[in-house]
Structures are given as C-alpha cells and as structure tokens.
C-alpha cells in the first residue's frame, strides 16, 4: 500500500522545522516514530502535502528530570521509556504502562510524544498522562513555547489543541514525594489495541491520606476518559478497600464502552471496575513501598 505523494524534508535544526510549520501550516505532518502516522498514510486516511521528518534533530531524545518534572522529549522511543532508570524511579504508572505499548518492534520507533499528539482514542499513553496530570510543551516560530495541560490538549478522538504551526517538543509529568501508580491493560494479543485499559495514580500526605488521585480509562469511551468524579471521591480520604470499590463503581458507571469483537459492553464495563480496584490497590502498594 502506498500513500499519496508528498514532499519530504528532514531538517537538522529545530528552527528549520518551526519555519516549515510556520510557512506551510496545515498541510504539514510531523514524522517522529511514524508507527501510527505511516499506517494511516498507507490507508490514505492521512494525506499530508509535506512530511517533516524530525528524526535528524539532535538533543531531542532525553528522558530526564527538569524543573520538578519528569520530562520525555519528542524523539524518546517507547523502548527508551521501557529501559529508562529515571522513569522506573520516578513514575510507577508510566513504568507499568511502557512494556504494554504496541509490540517490541513498534516500541523501537514509536514515541510517547507522538502517541499523545496523535490521540488515537484507544492509545494507552494518553490515559496515563491524564491520570498523572501531564503537560504538553509545544513550540512555534512566532508563538514561542506553550505549556498545555493534558486535559486541555486532548480535545476529542484524533483531535488536540495543538496548532498547525506548533511542534510538540516534550510531554512532562509532575514529580511526587509520596505516591504510586499503575496501568492495567487487557489485550487479546501483544500489539492489539486495549480491550480495556485503566491508568491510576495516587499521592499520599504525611498522615497517609490520599492527597491527589488520577484515574483514566482507555478504549471504553469515544476518547481517553479522565474520571474526575472517581478521583474526587478518593481525595481527602484514608485509602481502604471500600473506598477503592466506590471509586471503581464510579469509573464503571462513567465509561461508555461499545460491544465489538473484543467483548460486550457489559463485560468491558465490569473489567473497568475490576481494573480500577486492582490499579488503585497496586498504586497504594507502590506509594507505601
């Protein structure tokens, strides 16, 4: 299968990329890992006039700590996240999700930033980022740097608030002092979309009560769904089996899965409940560990 013909440019500096985006705007797609974009181009769901390959840029593949955040830059691959000691030490939800992104071959090219910017409603990273209150950093030639909270970045399926002139340069999550997280994913086989995915994140205060909570769901709504009501039910309370069951009940009620080859709506809704309980339990264990 072949995409429609396009202009291909592979600049070596970020400034050149930003210039092209400023000048050609909406007809341009940025190529990072390409593991979602190239299949879409081959199916001709996407037909950009110009493809800007950013893989020749240097200094854009770090995963590190910057200004109180764990930062993942635009060219860090999923496999880099899997192998990252910084991620393992800093963010349980990301560390737990990374090995379940796509398959090993796709993980070698695909990027976390690209996955978030693509916003496939069945993508795993967007849920993890919603649970962890991530921010997306975008740059443009004329607008400089813009920091966008993840909830405002993800607008709807395959739709974000990124402007056509902007380049996503990093996705970052706040560091936490005492906390833990988890990602539960049910898939039919490695590389398939999630039947159900649940990202959870908990932070505890000195007394052991929940000071911050994140719950977000994959593949059971029209887009990745942050379950704010369930999060609010947790915050301010001491963690308990009953409390987690209540949050799980709220999450199951909030989702709106469709029946398909991966399972019935009723089944998926119950998996959301079970995974939310399991995820919160695992998050608490990580926070207390």
């Amino acid at each position: 299968m072949y995409p429609r013909a396009f202009d291909y440019v592979a600049p070596e500096t970020k400034q050149e990329v930003l210039d092209i985006l400023a000048e050609r705007g909406g007809e341009v797609k940025v190529l990072a890992g390409g593991q979602s974009l190239i299949p879409m181009m081959k199916l001709r769901f996407a037909s950009p006039g110009t493809l800007v390959d950013i893989n020749r840029l240097s200094g854009l593949d770090s995963i590190d700590i910057q200004n109180g955040h764990l930062r993942v830059q635009a060219l860090a691959r999923h496999s880099d996240v899997v192998r990252s000691d910084v991620v393992a030490a800093e963010n349980d939800a990301m560390a737990s999700a990374a090995p379940w992104i796509a398959d090993p071959l796709v993980r070698n090219l695909g990027t976390l930033c690209g996955s978030v910017a693509h916003h496939d409603p069945e993508g795993d990273w967007a849920s993890v980022m919603l649970a962890c209150d991530a921010e997306v950093v975008a740059e443009s030639r004329d607008g400089g740097e813009r920091v966008i909270p993840i909830a405002g970045f993800l607008v709807d399926m395959f739709t974000t608030s990124l402007q056509p002139t902007e380049l996503v340069t990093e996705v970052r999550v706040p560091r936490y002092r005492r906390g833990g997280g988890n990602y539960q994913k049910l898939e039919r086989k490695i590389g398939d979309y999630a039947t159900v995915g649940v990202a959870t994140h908990l932070e505890l205060d000195d007394a052991g009560s929940i000071s911050n909570a994140g719950i977000a769901l994959t593949s059971v709504y029209a887009h990745n769904l942050k379950v704010t009501d369930a999060e609010q039910a947790l915050v301010g309370n001491a963690p308990s089996v009953e409390l987690f069951a209540e949050a799980a009940r709220i999450a199951a009620a909030a989702c709106d899965p469709t029946s398909d080859v991966r399972g019935s709506a009723e089944y998926k809704r119950d998996v959301v409940r079970v995974f939310t309980e399991r995820g919160l339990t695992a998050s608490l264990a990580a926070a207390q560990g």
Binding site: Y8, A10, L31, G34, Q35, I38, P39, L51, D53, N55, P104, L105, V106, N108, L109
Partner: peptide
C-alpha cells in the same frame, strides 16, 4: 523486520528516505 542501525524495526512502516 530488518535491523536499522542494529535495532529491529518493521520495514513496511518506514520510508526508505528515513534510512538515508
């Protein structure tokens, strides 16, 4: 699958120009 600079990748999901 081929090895691109030693890393296994899917060559149906990579434009040849990327391997320049």
């Amino acid at each position: 699958t081929v090895l691109l600079d030693g890393t296994p990748v899917k060559s149906c999901t990579l434009f040849a120009v990327q391997a320049d």
